[in-house]
């Protein structure tokens, strides 16, 4: 019980740290699923599952760009939740069998991720107005502090919401698996959905006007290597 609690708290902490990179400091892309899910897997003791979940989610929403004031969906929460679910599963099944169900549970958290992001941006605006007041009062130290607090607030909001939703989903995931043992195999096709949807979005963008030839040539080369790998 204590171990489970520690894992959930650690994962919420990770969600907070990674959201700071995405929103407020650095933008080093540590929050991309490929990196964040692997990091989460390393922390929770399941690096292989973390790496796979990250690769599955990576192309999702890749073509949705944060241009101007538009806030796109970001697959940070879905990938972290899916890794958490696999790490917290306590039963006889292999992780590979459960990825489809973990994706089904994790994917809807993308809405929460975006809602928290919007909420944080509003709070950042308030911090900006507070900073203006402090500057008028000549308190430049407090103006700078507003920036640091705003960055920390991004982490706090994401960590708190992840903690809440992660805990509920872990419970629901384990309860469902105990009740309906036949589900995981039936949901195997779901496992690769984020991957194919992300690639389809990119392909739709890239081949809209030109680029068909490059895409087809790449597909043929990839197909040959795929067949060779499957046969060997």
């Amino acid at each position: 019980m204590t171990g489970a609690l520690v894992k959930i708290l650690l994962s919420a902490f990770m969600a907070g740290i990674l959201s700071i990179d995405r929103n407020a400091f650095g933008q080093l892309q540590l929050s991309r699923p490929m990196v964040s899910a692997l990091a989460m897997g390393l922390v929770l003791g399941c690096p292989a599952e973390g790496a796979v979940i990250g690769l599955i989610y990576e192309p999702l929403f890749l073509s949705s760009l944060p241009v101007g004031s538009f806030i796109p969906y970001h697959p940070l929460f879905p990938s972290l939740v899916s890794v958490l679910l696999l790490a917290m599963y306590d039963g006889p099944r292999q992780p590979a069998e459960l990825v489809g169900l973990a994706v089904l549970f994790g994917a809807p958290t993308v809405f929460l991720d975006r809602a928290v992001n919007i909420h944080w941006r509003r709070s950042n605006e308030k911090a900006f107005h507070r900073a203006m007041v402090y500057l008028r009062l000549g308190r430049t130290d407090l103006v700078q502090l507003q920036h640091i607090l705003s960055a920390l607030r991004a982490g706090l909001y994401h960590a708190a919401s992840f903690l809440l939703v992660g805990s509920v989903l872990v419970l629901a995931f384990n309860l469902l698996l105990k009740s309906y043992e036949f589900w995981p195999q039936r949901l195997a096709v779901l496992a690769m959905l984020p991957f194919f949807i992300g690639l389809a979005a990119l392909a739709s963008d890239r081949t809209a006007r030109k680029g068909w030839w490059g895409f087809v040539l790449g597909l043929m080369a990839g197909g040959c290597i795929g067949v060779w790998r499957a046969l060997s």
Binding site: F215, G218, A221
Partner: peptide, 8 residues
Amino acid sequence: LGFVLGVA
């Protein structure tokens, strides 16, 4: 993109 899709 085509290559990744083909292998996958």
